[in-house]
Amino acid sequence: MSKAAQDRLFKSKGPELLVNLADHVTDSVKDVLGVSGITAEHLGQEVALRMSQVWCGQLIYFPSGTQLKSAQTHLQIFEAFNGRNHDEVATKFGVSVQHVYKVVKLIRKETLRDMQGDLFSGDSNELPKE
């Protein structure tokens, strides 16, 4: 069967969820990786079919990713902060100046912790985790 015939069959007979998933993967592959249209479509369909094989018949819950989105925003706030622009950053992200202070303090603390490691955990011969 030709690729064109497979594409038509997938789009006409495939379940709506799989067709929709394939379309989203296709768009993402085009946008993020710059892959051409036909290759991106084939990749989108392949991902949808493989997910169907792995999870067929199961009810799946997709979390909204609120915590991840919040962490990404915090990192953006931290990166926009230059030491003197609390007001500007607060306005840009629609948060209070106090929130900017808290975020900067939190990210600095996490960054230092990641760089220094924990002197009192586990085996002293262990290398710090990256």
Rank of each mutant, 00 (worst) to 15 (best):
K3E: 15
E130H: 05
M115A: 14
D118A: 07
L17Q: 13
G44H: 03
V89N: 03
A22L: 05
L75F: 05
H42R: 12
L21E: 13
A90H: 06
Q72P: 00
F78I: 10
E110I: 08
H86I: 15
E41M: 04
S28M: 11
V25C: 09
S28V: 11
T26C: 04
I77N: 02
G83D: 04
A40C: 07
G57F: 07
K30T: 07
E41Q: 13
Q53W: 05
Q72S: 13
N82C: 03
Q45F: 03
S124Q: 12
S70W: 00
N20I: 02
V19S: 06
S12A: 14
D7C: 11
S121L: 12
K3T: 14
V104W: 01
Q116W: 07
K69I: 01
A48R: 09
H24D: 15
V19G: 00
N20D: 12
E16Q: 08
E88C: 03
C56K: 11
D118T: 08
E110C: 04
A40V: 05
R50H: 11
V104L: 00
A40W: 00
A90N: 09
N85A: 07
K30A: 11
F62L: 15
T73D: 11
Q6D: 10
G14H: 01
T26H: 06
R8F: 10
L49D: 07
V100C: 10
D118N: 12
D114I: 00
A22S: 09
Q67Y: 03
I107T: 05
K69H: 09
P63I: 04
G34I: 04
N20T: 11
T111H: 05
R8G: 03
Q58S: 14
P128T: 02
A71V: 06
L21Q: 01
F78P: 09
V32K: 10
D114S: 11
G122F: 02
H24V: 11
S121F: 10
Q116M: 13
K92A: 15
D31P: 02
S64H: 02
D31R: 14
D7N: 13
D123W: 09
E79R: 13
K3F: 04
K102N: 15
N20P: 02
I38Q: 08
I77R: 02
V103H: 04
L119E: 11
